[in-house]
């Protein structure tokens, strides 16, 4: 089972994004447009996801280890620092300009729109640039 858990969880995640309409940039922009014709759907998506993770996470983490690995790989950083806030601001700006965060952007590659391919490549370049900037914390510290 370990061999295909990545695929199964990805399938569930992608199905959830498409079913909820989050692969439509207009719906995401509509949610962020609180001063215009606000579209609450993203709030329902977050609510559904959070009901599961708020209840499920403590249950899963009460185990000593995951089913197919030696230990849980959880972020170690605990302090709110300028990197976190600055990163969230820049991410939020890009999200509001186009309507995709990373999950829906990758999922929407299914539609074959050239603009989505361009967005995803630019996103990877942005991630690479962030690493080059020397501002990021290492994966182990995250």
């Amino acid at each position: 089972m370990r061999g295909i858990t990545g695929l199964l969880t990805g399938l569930l995640f992608g199905a959830g994004l498409a079913l909820s309409g989050m692969t439509d940039t207009a719906k995401v922009i509509g949610f962020l447009n609180v001063f215009g014709g606000w579209d609450p759907d993203l709030m329902w998506v977050m609510s559904g996801a959070l009901v599961v993770t708020l209840i499920g996470t403590p249950l899963v983490l009460s185990k000593t280890k995951p089913m197919f690995d030696a230990a849980f790989s959880l972020p170690l950083a605990t302090t709110v620092d300028r990197r976190l806030v600055a990163g969230a601001v820049l991410f939020g700006m890009g999200w509001g300009l186009w309507g995709y965060c990373p999950g829906p952007a990758v999922a929407a590659l299914a539609y074959g729109d050239i603009s989505t391919v361009v967005f995803c490549i630019a996103m990877l370049v942005g991630m690479w640039l962030a690493g080059k900037s020397g501002l990021t914390i290492s994966r182990l510290q995250q």
């Binding site: 089972m1 370990r2 858990t5 990545g6 199964l8 969880t9 990805g10 569930l12 995640f13 199905a15 959830g16 994004l17 498409a18 079913l19 909820s20 309409g21 989050m22 759907d41 993203l42 329902w44 998506v45 977050m46 609510s47 559904g48 996801a49 959070l50 009901v51 599961v52 993770t53 499920g56 996470t57 899963v60 983490l61 185990k63 280890k65 995951p66 089913m67 197919f68 690995d69 230990a71 849980f72 790989s73 959880l74 972020p75 965060c101 990373p102 999950g103 990758v106």
Partner: peptide, 26 residues
Amino acid sequence: SPLSGGLLIGLSSMLLLLTLGRIAGV
């Protein structure tokens, strides 16, 4: 639809944590 889609996303995240011990951060 948005609520059930969200439930699927949450379920996916919990399965990844349960099986591989990983955070489903895309």
